[in-house]
Design a protein around this nucleic acid. Structure first.
Lengths: 338, 338
DNA sequence: TTGTAGGCGTTATCAG
DNA sequence: CTGATAACGCCTACAA
């Protein structure tokens, strides 16, 4: 079923069918309706590949997600969902690529084969070969997170430095003098993952400025790691009475370790952090946390990307999200030593 | 950068470049290497749209996921991840569509525009308009879950009936005489969602055969609903000592409600069910459950789909997964009444 | 208001 | 072993 068939059955030329569909030149109401009824009857839809070839654009966005061996966090999942929703609103399709670097086959297929008009890159690292590749290709892209040189790329990000700092300040205000930071995994830190680095900076900044003690712990993105991380904190630094966490996937384990140690929250131990709202509400009592606005970020990323596809040479916009810290029930005054 | 440019710079014709790349006819080693070096230098990759137009296939699979307003469960997420991994292994791309019915724009774009060679349909309902549409279009597809007439479609599914039945039997064997079923949401049941219907059937079957009492409760897919569902069970049927659950997202709430009611697991209350392994291990104590093999299912679905794309007229294969119930620590002998 | 024709980048058939 | 050429289905400049 192609445009020629529709033209034949409507008794007009192919161009008339095309114009009737696109509205780019006027078509008499009579022929227009005749064409439309043939189209409806046969269920014709223009072939996407032919259209892409002719127009030089695919009406498709690439979404590069972290490789699948690690489960996506809820935050990432919310982000994917909101990108899909925003793309759908703009009548754009989303092609998924699980790629950690620019040599991954799916990345190569999508970028090299020009299967997409633009790319959203999740979990970008401070120095990221995928960014170089996209720039070389001249393919519009938006990163989630900043590279080390953010001034000339288009990005959206969460201000982990300021959020970690504010969480730490909040705990110090409550009288805590010995804080732990539950950061992301050591591998992520080593690979130059921005949020982990910036969370560390913000935490250290607050700790130094307020003159209290702070200890950083890296923790893999799962409950079991969260549990052993907290156990290690309690063992090596029993004086710690509060933790800042930027590792939402570890939260159930953090909870379990504190429960098992008999440390009531917040009476004996306070926790504050950055997390998807889901995890914050899953915590018990609910977690005082900056709720990462993944849905807004996804929508913003798509909007930015559409803008860059339209005007590749315009200055790249970016937006740093600094969501408010929602005061819930997991933080309280430091326990008085007995 | 196109094949003509490569041909020009290599001093050969476009067809020779094409054949050098595909290997579909022999090319002398000398010219082959010359071509390859030009390709490497310029970073040429065939344009996917042109190739799709010419070959009549897109090398892309469509993955229709449940609409994004409801968060994907871990089971669904595992499934998506495994589909992506399997597709990547076969050098196929994955186009995502969040579509609940056949009129959703993204479904229409993907299916109508022939953007994919085949479709994997998640969360299929007993009567599903998307299935009709795909059949009408003659587009190969695999469903996750069965329709009411499964004999002539290709599918993979979990045998919820048998698993619910076996969970119930296990609990009866332990001496429980009053069981509850924590099913999926009432809306899902009303919309003809197969797993919910079949879980009900299996549960009822076991209860009837064993001569014990069983009560079914519908429960939305989230922790809060799980909590109030268990509260309702305890309030309306205090004689219930055990539950079968097929609602993994409700598990944290089930746990919390039992904790708050002071019902120790498994001493005072037993729980068994079907869940992604993640949730089973998240439960405390770990949940006796059939671990849904989402990863295997995703791989099987992709394999089936590739087969159907290759031979659309072959009899449609299907596979019913019946994973073993892993005995963990959430089930025990019925408490003796006091 | 409508029709004709060329070309987007590939692959594959037919000649040589 | 290689080259010219037609087609895939669509859009649009040009012509009527």
């Amino acid at each position: 079923m192609n445009i020629g068939e529709i033209a034949r059955r409507s008794g007009v030329s192919r161009s008339t069918v095309s114009y009737a569909l696109s509205g780019k030149r006027s078509v008499s109401e009579a022929t227009r309706q005749r064409i439309q009824s043939v189209i409806d009857e046969l269920g014709y839809r223009p072939n996407a590949a032919a259209r892409a070839l002719k127009e030089g654009r695919t009406r498709t966005l690439g979404l590069v997600v972290p490789p699948v061996r690690d489960r996506l966090t809820f935050m990432q999942l919310d982000f994917v969902a909101s990108v899909m929703a925003a793309a759908d609103r703009a009548d754009l399709d989303v092609l998924l690529s699980p790629a950690a670097d620019d040599h991954d086959r799916s990345f190569e297929r999508i970028v090299g084969g020009r299967r997409v008009d633009g790319v959203i890159l999740m979990e970008v690292r401070l120095k990221d070969p995928r960014v170089e590749r996209l720039r070389d290709m001249g393919l519009p892209f938006v990163t989630i997170g900043r590279t080390a040189r953010p001034q000339d790329t288009c990005w959206v990000d969460v201000d982990y430095a300021s959020l970690a700092e504010r969480c730490a300040n909040h705990l110090v205000d409550l009288g805590h003098r010995h804080l732990a930071l539950v950061n992301r995994s050591a591998e992520l830190v080593a690979s130059g993952y921005g949020p982990a680095h910036r969370a560390r900076e913000g935490f250290n900044e607050a700790v130094a400025r307020r003159g209290v003690e702070g200890f950083e712990f890296c923790c893999a993105d799962n409950a079991a790691a969260g549990e052993s991380c907290v156990q290690e904190i309690l063992r090596t630094h029993p004086e710690v009475t509060a933790a800042v966490t930027v590792n939402e996937a570890a939260l159930p384990g953090v909870q379990r370790a504190l429960d098992r140690a008999g440390l009531e929250i917040p009476a004996r131990f306070s926790v504050a952090g950055v997390a998807a709202r889901y995890w914050a509400e899953q915590f018990h009592p609910e977690l005082t946390a900056a709720d990462v606005p993944a849905a807004d970020m996804g929508a913003a990323a798509v909007e930015f990307l559409i803008g860059r596809i339209a005007e590749p040479d315009s200055p790249p916009p970016h937006h740093l999200f600094t969501p408010p810290i929602s005061l819930r029930n997991s933080t309280g005054p430091a326990p008085t030593p007995r």
